[in-house]
Computed example of a mutant assay.
Amino acid sequence: MSWTDPTGKRIRRGIGHKSKVNRRTAKARRLELQISLNENRGQQGSARSPWVMWSERYLVNRTAELMPKTIAMHHQVVRLLTENAYRSHELVMALTPARANDVVASWRTLVGPATVAKWVRIAKTVFTHALNEGEVLMNPFAHISGAEPTPAQRERHVTIEDVTKVTQYLLEQKPKTAAGWEGFKTRAGVALMVQLGYWTGMRTGECRHTAGILIHGHQELDEDRYILYPRGEYETTKQKQRVIRIEPTLRLWWKQHGKYLQTMGKKPSNPYRVVKDAMEVVDVEPFTFADLRRTRDVIWHQTYPSHVCNVWLGHSERVAQKHYLSVSEEHYS
């Protein structure tokens, strides 16, 4: 069995005859050897940094590289590791895979599984940097899955009738008191989000961001395309500038309601709850903004080439096949 440590040195250890040791046993023994080497190097007084000092330097170095919201999450995970994983003045290498398991178990008592998965991914990134700098011989979170739990696939295809019912209800429910106008303005903004989600396939955050831009009159939906700029001018794997097709039906809807929304609407807040309440009132089967995006992807793929649809929607062919393309009831009729 052999592996390369962060200094580039090739380490070889015998663990028995190949025919008598399976892959799982070999992996477990390699992990034990790495932990033992970690402890030995710490006892020998090799130049290693205490966790507190190293983590502060890590956050300073990454601040210029990451978006503000992302670096804020890194600060949060580092603080959690400092509180739950390290004793005072311990070196970075002191965190073992077993202790990392205990840390993640404690996180599961605080937050939901999706947040835990996000924290695990950030912890892996932190210790990958520590590994590259030679502070540790292995990533203690490497064996823990950072994938978010996926619920049972709900391939809900939203019809134009469902969208019309929801948006009409959101726009027609006038408040009876002066205090109710703020809620009405929010509902008007959410109605625009639903229309954008159905006709353009934008992600939830993109719908909310675009609705705010349109309501404040910074852009219009009067052409056959719309340039979507990333929020905060930061480009990520999901938030990139792209040109989206604007369907004639959406342009007509905006022409009818645009001036009204610019006068009465505001950038939506808490759109999930507003849409959920509206669907219960108008008796529509519940759907999410991801369902709206999936529906648009399927509709466009029936008319346009795949590479064109993927450019409009801002994802790859692999992502479209895995998450969005599915069979609707209309395919059977």
Rank of each mutant, 00 (worst) to 15 (best):
A85Q: 07
A28N: 11
E133V: 05
Y226W: 07
H323A: 03
G232C: 03
T204D: 09
L66Q: 05
V308K: 14
S49H: 01
A152S: 10
A123C: 10
A191D: 07
R156F: 05
R154S: 12
K267W: 03
V52D: 03
A278E: 09
L170R: 11
L33G: 10
D224H: 14
F184T: 09
Q302I: 02
R24D: 04
I299A: 00
R99L: 06
N132C: 12
E223P: 04
G205F: 01
I244P: 04
N61H: 06
R156V: 01
A117V: 00
N38R: 15
M53D: 09
V78S: 11
R10K: 14
W119H: 14
K255M: 05
E32F: 01
V275L: 15
R41D: 11
V136H: 14
Y272Q: 08
V120N: 03
L196A: 07
Q173P: 05
E182A: 15
Y234C: 02
K174N: 10
E182R: 15
A72H: 03
K69E: 05
M73H: 08
Y234Q: 04
L31E: 12
E172M: 13
M193S: 14
V21N: 13
S328Y: 04
G258P: 13
R203V: 10
Y304N: 07
N61S: 10
D297W: 02
G8K: 07
I299C: 02
D102Y: 07
M202D: 04
A114H: 06
P113M: 06
G201N: 03
K176R: 11
D297S: 04
K9A: 08
E155K: 02
K9W: 13
M53Q: 09
V327P: 00
T63W: 00
W107F: 02
T249S: 15
G189C: 07
